[in-house]
């Protein structure tokens, strides 16, 4: 198996899977070359992520990265997530083969978009 044990664990037992009702922020990340799509939902309290959920269409690494990425960001200040990188997601999933690095990019893009959406909503309210 060329995937890390962490990745396999997240693929086997995805954490935070499924949609969220009335989220404080929603964002999507796409990788058109691969047709991968990740959607991330955030619940925010006092500027911190208290709950994150995902829905993902893609290969096993993208599903695992979605699980690991949502787990990573719970407890994080919203402001830090707009600068989240693919490398941070890749690290959270225990590394990715070179031809699967896009999995981390899709998920980090979805999280950044969700954080920006939450910040916009907070600014409006």
């Amino acid at each position: 198996m060329r995937y890390s044990e962490t990745l396999i664990d997240h693929f086997r037992n995805p954490r935070n899977a499924g949609m969220m009702r009335e989220p404080d922020g929603v964002g999507e990340g796409e990788y058109p070359e691969c047709m991968d799509l990740a959607r991330v939902y955030l619940r925010v309290r006092d500027g911190q992520v208290v709950e994150a959920r995902f829905q993902t269409y893609g290969c096993g690494p993208t599903i695992a990265a979605s699980s690991a990425g949502t787990e990573l960001i719970i407890g994080s200040p919203l402001g830090t997530l707009v600068g989240l990188t693919g490398a941070q997601i890749e690290s959270a999933v225990g590394g990715l083969p070179e031809d699967r690095v896009h999995a981390a990019e899709v998920v980090s893009a979805a999280i950044r978009a969700a954080a920006r959406d939450a910040l916009r909503r907070m600014a409006r309210s």
Partner: peptide
């Protein structure tokens, strides 16, 4: 991948190569 983890070997019709599927 899911079937591989169950010990089953099948093949995918679509193949992701170098980030393109």
């Amino acid at each position: 991948l899911g079937l591989d983890l169950k010990g089953i070997g099948v093949s995918a019709g679509s193949a992701c190569t170098s980030g393109n599927v």
